[in-house]
Design a protein around this nucleic acid. Structure first.
Length: 419
RNA sequence: CGGGCUGUAGUAUAAUGGUAGUAUACAUGCUUUGGGAGUAUGCGGCCUGGGUUCGAUUCCCAGCAGCCCGACCA
């Protein structure tokens, strides 16, 4: 994309109404805009990152065999009454229509997906079966905080699985854990699988937690055997011995990036979601649910991957792979040549199918271009200038050193990245 | 929902019971071009309502909004 044609949302100052590192950086670098507490717009750069996260999640969940659907955000009161959550779910956003009918904005979709699956699940042969969606969720949080980490509207992938028996659920659950691990690995996140309470969903659950000093959660963990529990179900202190391997327990604050539950019949019961089993008997469907906040993941990445100059995106979710920066100025003829060379490189990169942001703005000084480039945090910066002649300066965002290369090097680099 | 802090220009900030300042951004000109350039000119502002006062952006009260702590967090 040509930067000269893009609206520039980059700011010189951090916003005063955000304290959370992730939101400060994302807003300043022009990825998101704050609309109100806990609600943000995704700007061109931010949307690219979010879309990439969603794509990775989609790929891995598709591999699980789940089917993507899109359910409504506006949902009927009756469904929530059926499960008792119209009254019990405090964070449910409720809206009233002009004829005084009440609705809920989707905070989670058991109440919608169960009646939906009722239309496709009749036999044990119809299972296992999984439906998922990537959609905006609404939660009336008592207090929105930590920037993108706890919003009132956010993007979430929610998957619901349906099974004839609990063994099949166990199997699916294990596969889901693997899928989630793949997702976090691809995002460059070191996520721990942590046992947690099930809240109102079920007896217990598993969370995926990324350690960070700014996390809301607290995790008790053992490096030796990977034992990990949320502090809400384990009151051990740092230095206590691990119940599994007697190793040393440690405690870290952490950000929850995924949560999976065995729902069993909690939501199939109220809707009488039944099927005919091999033995001819009618039985109740067993369920699991699996959530990942993809907009939160963007916040987590921003929270973790940065330095004093700005963001540093992992390749897999960077808004662009290359930031091509042309430095004109000085002698007019030389300047023209620089932009001509840069234009050509831009075209060549596009032909290679590379996502490249091209800073072709002739009215910006080098200092401003560099500062903005670092702030945006694209993994590789390519500089074309009179000083570099026909060579291109190649610099990784997370490295201090730059090197002068030919286009053939860049081509090779792109190919190596694909493998 | 309790407690605390804060609302000044697009953004970030300063001062003040009596004409609101700086930086940046924006517009125009000239100069400049490898780490947020220089210069000149211009445009642009005190959250809302009430109270005290001759006079309130400033003090008081309320509301609204934002942030933080707590409670909550499916």
């Amino acid at each position: 994309m040509l930067q000269s044609k893009l609206s520039n949302f980059v700011r010189k100052e951090f916003p005063k109404d955000e304290e959370a590192h992730n939101a400060r950086l994302l807003i300043r670098a022009g990825f998101i805009d704050k609309v109100m507490a806990g609600v943000y717009s995704y700007l061109p750069f931010g949307l690219r990152v979010l879309s990439k996260i969603n794509s990775i999640v989609r790929e891995e969940i598709n591999k699980l065999g789940a089917q993507e659907v899109l359910m409504p955000a506006l949902t009927p009161k009756e469904n929530w009454q059926q499960t008792g959550r119209w009254e019990n779910f405090d964070a449910l956003f409720k809206v009233i229509s002009r004829d005084k009918k009440e609705f809920a904005l989707g905070a989670t979709h058991e109440e919608i997906v169960v009646p939906l699956s009722q239309k496709a699940i009749f036999s044990y042969k119809d299972m296992p079966c999984g439906f998922y969606q990537i959609q905006n969720k609404f939660r009336d949080e008592p207090r929105a905080k930590s920037g993108m980490l706890r919003g009132r509207e956010f993007v979430m992938k929610d998957l619901y699985s349906f099974h004839a028996d609990s063994e099949d659920l166990d199997l699916y659950y294990k596969k889901a854990i693997k899928a989630y691990s793949n997702i976090f690995k691809r995002l460059g996140l070191n996520a721990w699988l942590v046992e947690a309470s099930g809240g109102t969903f079920s007896k217990y659950s598993h969370e995926f937690q990324v350690f960070s000093p700014n996390g809301e959660d607290s995790v008790v963990y053992c490096k030796k055997c990977q034992f990990a529990q949320n502090s809400e179900i384990n009151s051990s202190k740092s230095g206590d011995s691990c119940p599994k391997c007697k190793g040393l327990l440690e405690i870290s604050s952490a950000i929850e990036v995924g949560n999976i539950f065995k729902l069993n019949t909690k939501y199939s019961d109220p809707f009488s979601l039944k099927f005919r089993d091999k033995d001819g008997l009618e039985k109740i469907v067993i369920m699991g649910c699996y959530g990942i906040g993809t907009s939160r993941l963007m916040g987590v990445a921003a929270e973790l991957f940065n330095d004093e100059k700005g963001l540093i995106w992992p390749e897999s979710i960077a808004p662009f792979q290359f930031h091509l920066v042309a430095l004109g100025g000085g002698d007019e003829k030389e300047s023209k040549k620089v932009y001509q060379r840069a234009n050509k490189i831009y075209d060549q990169l596009l032909k290679l199918g590379i996502e490249v942001l091209y800073d072709d703005r002739e009215d910006k000084t080098p200092g401003e271009k560099f500062a903005e480039s670092d702030l945006i945090g694209i993994p590789v910066r390519l500089v074309v200038s009179a000083r570099n002649g026909t060579k291109i300066e190649f610099k990784k965002r997370n490295m201090a050193k730059a090197s002068l290369v030919d286009f053939s090097f860049i081509k090779k680099y792109c190919i190596s990245q694909r493998d």
